[in-house]
């Protein structure tokens, strides 16, 4: 059972060949630094900042309990804390939005 052939361009030459699905992944870019999301499902233990606080990169915003650890969630950029979407004790899913940062330009 021969699979249908696709096209693959290398250095301007178009090759007729099979391109397995998993071998070409589109680049999704780096994540948006103004949205702090949960990298793993877990429980919010403590929120260390309030809306309107000025923050610097590396300041701990909140603690997320997952994998038997209190994981420190920080911002990559400096700026103002916008909306905080969770409260202490909340269970969160992977990739759930936790905090918005208004980044200093």
């Amino acid at each position: 059972m021969e699979k249908e052939l696709d096209k693959l361009i290398i250095d301007g030459t178009e090759y007729v060949t099979e391109v397995p699905e998993c071998s070409i992944k589109p680049y999704e870019g780096v994540s948006d630094p103004s949205e702090i999301r949960a990298f793993i499902p877990g429980t919010i233990v403590e929120i260390k900042v309030s809306e309107g606080d000025m923050i610097e990169p590396g300041v701990v915003l909140l603690l997320l309990d997952a994998m038997k650890m209190h994981n420190e969630i920080c911002s990559r950029e400096s700026g103002l804390i916008g909306k905080i979407h969770v409260s202490s004790g909340d269970s969160v899913q992977k990739n759930q939005l936790l905090v918005n940062i208004i980044i200093n330009k």
Partner: peptide
């Protein structure tokens, strides 16, 4: 293997 991915190295 030119049959797959034109035989590129990855």
């Amino acid at each position: 293997q030119p049959r797959i991915l034109a035989g590129v190295l990855d």
